[in-house]
Design a protein around this nucleic acid. Sequence first.
DNA 1: GCGAACCTACTCGGATATGGGATGTCCGAGTTCTCGTGG
DNA 2: CCACGAGAACTCGGACATCCCATATCCGAGTAGGTTCGC
Lengths: 158, 158
Amino acid sequence: MGEGVEWGLHCCMNLAMLGPAMAVPTVRLAGFHELPVAYLNKQMQALARAGIVTSVPGRGGGFKLARDPSKITLMDVVVAIEGTESAFRCTEIRARGPAGSWGTVHAACTIDAAMRQADVAWRRALAEQTLADIVAAAQRRYPAMRDRVTAWFTTAAV
Amino acid sequence: MGEGVEWGLHCCMNLAMLGPAMAVPTVRLAGFHELPVAYLNKQMQALARAGIVTSVPGRGGGFKLARDPSKITLMDVVVAIEGTESAFRCTEIRARGPAGSWGTVHAACTIDAAMRQADVAWRRALAEQTLADIVAAAQRRYPAMRDRVTAWFTTAAV
DNA sequence: GCGAACCTACTCGGATATGGGATGTCCGAGTTCTCGTGG
DNA sequence: CCACGAGAACTCGGACATCCCATATCCGAGTAGGTTCGC
């Protein structure tokens, strides 16, 4: 799984804490975690295309969450950045070789079905957790987090 | 996810249908699905190292399942070939940047916990299914499968 | 003082290089079967 | 006919190339805000 997923999740988490009022440019989002600016921008574009964040162009622009954090699941973010394909991809090797002419290919591959079942379980687990849940959990452990984050992001750049 | 996982699963499935008596060389396993011989051999070595199959050297040798198919889970095969690392890897980007000095790092990352939870669900789904289950399911759809597979593998090479 | 036009700086957006890991290939060590030979 | 030994062929096992995608970077189009000029 790509590293950009982690970045996107953390950035979305920060945007969720900041609220939908202010737009944060990529430079600041990257600076908060010391990430490569241009590459993070690429991930943010993916999030924008998926409709998770909205981009505000021009001076004073940036990114902000497109909808309430309780309406954004981890699944949404992962799919937006990593793509919709499942980890396991059945290439139907049954069709190649001697067994290809046996007629067994006309129905679903048993192995593919099993792997797909596991993939569904994974997706379901991700879809059950929203950004709001994550923020709430973090807030429960570090009550001062939101204040410190908002303080840093609203402060003028160093 | 690597393509070798699919190959390894199908090969294990074939070995399960053939029974533990005969050892099948890589050439035949590859020929059944028209796969690159040497590269499949690499995957089989991984399965051997993991103790899923046992290798028989010398003429007439090959690979055979190390234990009963009901004792081999899909999880075992996937881990043997793909490795034990989970898809998502937390690099602790919280520690970098200004938030690194806030002391929030001393506890687990909330995002990592959520992703890990999904990963556990995936692994659990894979661990619940054994090779015997897969073979039984396939057999249920194509009752003649085992016979045809054994027939092909026991027949002298073309 | 007020408004408008211009200009600058800043932002996103997509097109463009680069490196590491999966993919693919090769040859050597070791074992087993086979064939020939002698008793 | 049987035992035995040398040979050959076949197998796994790991070391060696190659290709593709994730990573990383850059520059251009476009916009908001600040500035200046005119009234």
